[in-house]
Design a protein around this nucleic acid. Sequence first.
DNA 1: GCGACAG
DNA 2: ATCTTGTCGC
Length: 236
Amino acid sequence: MDLHRRHRWDLTPKEAVALQQELRAEVVTDRPLDLAGVRLVAGVDVSVKENVSQAAVVVATFPGFETIEVARAVRPTPFPYVPGLLSFREGPVLEEAFGKLTVEPDVFVFDGSGYAHPRRIGIACHMGLWLGRPTIGCSKTRLTGRHDEVPPEKGAWAPLLDKDEVVGAALRTRASTSPVFVSPGHLIDLASAIDIVMACSPKYRLPQPIRLAHNAAGAFEPGPDLFGRSTDPDRP
DNA sequence: GCGACAG
DNA sequence: ATCTTGTCGC
């Protein structure tokens, strides 16, 4: 891991913004990442239970999505939720989980934004700097930017524009459901990020790595409830 | 000053 | 994120 990018996390919101301004220059979002070379993908997510955050990083084969490793970490939640500063809330517990990995995933998919951020350094970019590995941001809702209506077919997408700059894409990973928001994290470009997220979404709205991480983080239990309805947010 | 605002 | 019941559509 790249120790040079480590830094303290106990900052005030104001200091956190200043740090983001420093780190944004280090983020690389113009590098293609060939799908054909991907063997292992990791999903990253954090669940919060009463001041306690639990992180889960699930490494799975690609394609096939067989889990080969799960790294977890539990810590008191250190920072409030502030739009634009999510990495300062989830970063510490994620670092601990990342430190437990014994394999090196080819790409990490985050439940959150990457470059599609007001200062162009969402959690996927920030943690990508720490990991020194390719990362992708994939959120369920929009943090910043606007986009035209996305065609209804699976795979269709529309550029996410913020201040006349393409910062990501609204991507239809599944027909008849709202699009997800994809943006480069670090060491990858937007086109490659879109390709990978689509390749990771054979059936559900959210890419498989994120679903696996979501489960491992304890956000929801799988299987139908007592009424025969699905408990899975991404299964109608 | 008024909205918008990942998880 | 988490809380929380039923309901609508493919």
